[in-house]
Amino acid sequence: MEIRLIPESFDPQLYNSTTLHPLQSWEWGEARKQTGLKIIRFGEFSGKILKKSYLMTLHKVPMTNFKIGYIPRSGILSKDLLNFLNQIASKENIIFIKFEPYIFKSEIRNPRFARRAKLDSSLEVRRTKWETNSKFKIINSKHPLFTQWTIIMDLSKSEKILMENLKPKTRYNIKLAQKKGVFIKEESNKKGYEIFENLYFETTKRQHYLGHDKNYHRIVWDNMKNKVSHILIAYYKDEPLSAYQLFIYKNRGYYVYGGSSEKHRNFMASNLLMWESLIFCKNQGCTEFDMWGSLSKNYKQSDSYAGFTRFKEGYGGNFTQMIGSYDLVIKSFVYRIYNLAYSFRKFILKI
């Protein structure tokens, strides 16, 4: 298998056919370029045939000449890919490359999957270090961008079975919202996006959440709309109460962003909206739905994200553990300094 860069002139549809996740899609790469990042697309080729594609974004470290590479939600990186990334890292002055594969831990323990992915027998994700080859320094990331757990819904079941599998409180809240007159509309257009944006930033302000700015979200929407991204809105009469931005990629739906109003909170609009989001994705041909992160299945009610996890858990999905987040360390000394500075910054922000 030969590893090669993928040019801008490449067929986006062919590229997407060899990726796992919307954050590896051609459209996501275009969005990240427009936010000011350099992107590198590369793939595994058998002759002229592209077998697997990968997207890496490069992030400048402020006030330095260094960069960080990030490969979100890809497949497993082979030795050949790691060699290729080392070469790129030298040219781009990269400290480390973070990669967060979209691989479930249950898959990696399956011998058939391991053979199919051509994994080394030395691969052991439960240890502190993951070393496919002593040449590469790959460690568990101290600063993952994704949670290690998510909740996956099986949408291949009938709508009746999906309803029966809901937690009683969730089912009650859905029916309450319907009784109150809440209804759901897909509005994957300019008007719908603007409603979503207003509710999303109203929510981030209310919850003191520091995320991306409006320009970032508009760039993502402009590049992903209709092909990947869809907007669903919960209304009471003519008033929007809650809005979600969903991704649909291949046979899986994803809950990515959501926002809600402070008005009529006792109408449980968000409960109905999530239910209708599942049905919407099912009707679009999805067989699974990823809730985009959660705490572990043994989470404590005192955890800061317990409420959000409890909300997602109410839909009857399965807690699913990913294999984790890893850093391919290129410059060991600078990497240690970076981690110290990162930890210090987080400490200062908490004061």
Rank of each mutant, 00 (worst) to 15 (best):
F10Q: 02
P12C: 13
Y15I: 12
N16R: 13
T18D: 00
P22C: 03
Q24C: 04
W28S: 06
R32S: 07
T35M: 10
I39W: 04
G43D: 05
E44P: 13
S46G: 10
G47I: 05
K51D: 15
K51Y: 08
K52M: 13
Y54R: 03
L55E: 02
T57W: 00
T64P: 11
N65I: 13
F66C: 09
G69L: 06
R73S: 11
S74C: 15
L81G: 01
Q87W: 07
E92K: 14
I94G: 06
I94P: 03
F96M: 03
F99V: 08
P101S: 15
K105Q: 06
P111K: 04
A114K: 15
S121A: 10
L123G: 05
V125W: 13
V125R: 04
R126Q: 14
T128K: 12
K129A: 10
K129F: 10
W130F: 15
E131W: 04
I138W: 03
I139T: 04
N140S: 14
H143D: 09
P144W: 00
T147W: 05
T147K: 05
W149G: 04
K157V: 03
L162Q: 04
L162S: 04
L162D: 01
E164A: 09
N165R: 10
P168I: 09
K169P: 14
K169V: 14
T170A: 12
T170S: 10
Y172N: 08
I174T: 11
I174H: 11
Q178E: 14
K180F: 05
V182W: 10
F183Y: 15
K185H: 14
E186T: 09
E194N: 13
I195S: 06
I195Q: 05
Y200S: 03
F201M: 07
F201A: 05
E202S: 13
H208P: 03
K214D: 06
I219N: 08
N226D: 12
K227L: 00
S229Q: 00
I233S: 01
Y235H: 07
Y235F: 15
Y244E: 03
Q245K: 01
I248G: 00
Y255E: 06
G258K: 06
K263D: 12
H264F: 15
N271S: 06
L272Q: 11
L272T: 11
L272I: 08
S277M: 12
L278H: 08
T287W: 08
T287Q: 08
E288D: 08
W292T: 07
S296D: 15
S296H: 10
K297M: 09
Q301M: 14
S302V: 07
S302K: 15
D303E: 10
D303P: 04
Y305V: 00
F311S: 01
K312V: 02
E313N: 04
Y315A: 02
G317V: 02
N318C: 01
Q321V: 00
V329Q: 08
K331F: 03
F333G: 00
V334Q: 09
R336M: 01
I337E: 06
L340W: 10
S343A: 07
R345G: 02
I348T: 06
L349E: 14
